[in-house]
Amino acid sequence: MEKPEKPCAPLTCPIVRSVRLIGDEWVLLVLRALFRGAHRFDELQKQTGAATNILTNRLGRLVEGGLVVKSPYQERPVRYKYELSPSGVALFPVVMELMRWGDQWLPCENVAPAMLLHTECGKLSRPGQQCSECGGALTPRNIELVESEEGAARAA
């Protein structure tokens, strides 16, 4: 699938264009929920904690930006599911790096660092491009974001 050409201001760099689309905490929370397997509005709302109007707005932005595909899953009443497009899936390493960077440079006293369960090896991994235990690639399909206590119990 070819990417549509969009006219850009001469001095607009790709970083600015990207941040205009995804540089919002609600957008990143929606992407995180989609990476975790949520597809329906109510699931996304539960995982993000976003108010209905905020979630509707951010989903619209992601659909318009080509990161998310909206399609009906029920006719009466019409209900939609939201799935990542190839360009949305391609943001996975960016989100992993933000998670890793945040744990390293913006730690919280009362919050444990983010951990992922790498389902291919069954071990806990730090966020990144590769599993910190087996070295295998981390993808949206082979990781689960876990709370530290839950993750320790599952990996044991």
Rank of each mutant, 00 (worst) to 15 (best):
Q104W: 07
W101F: 15
T52H: 03
K70P: 00
E97G: 10
A137G: 09
L21I: 13
A51Y: 05
G135R: 01
R126L: 14
E147A: 15
L106D: 03
H39F: 05
K123I: 00
A9V: 04
E75P: 02
L98A: 15
A155Q: 02
R20N: 12
A156S: 10
V146R: 07
K3V: 13
L117E: 00
S132Q: 11
A153G: 03
E83N: 15
P140E: 15
A38K: 05
G128L: 08
P93A: 08
M1E: 11
M1Y: 08
Q104N: 10
V94D: 04
A156K: 15
L21P: 00
I22T: 04
R141P: 01
Y80W: 11
E109P: 02
A156Q: 14
V89P: 02
D42V: 08
Q130P: 03
D42Q: 04
F35C: 10
V146M: 11
L44Q: 01
L138V: 08
V95A: 10
T12V: 13
A9M: 02
R61I: 15
M115H: 12
S87N: 09
R40Q: 01
G66F: 01
E120H: 10
E75L: 04
R36L: 09
V69P: 00
L67E: 04
A114T: 14
P72I: 06
W105D: 12
W26M: 13
P4M: 11
E133G: 10
V30E: 12
A155W: 03
Q74F: 02
V68K: 04
L11R: 03
K46Y: 10
V63S: 01
E133K: 09
V89R: 13
E25W: 09
L84K: 10
G151W: 04
R141N: 10
G122D: 03
T48I: 03
Q74S: 06
L62S: 03
V95T: 08
A137Q: 15
K3D: 14
Y82T: 02
T12H: 03
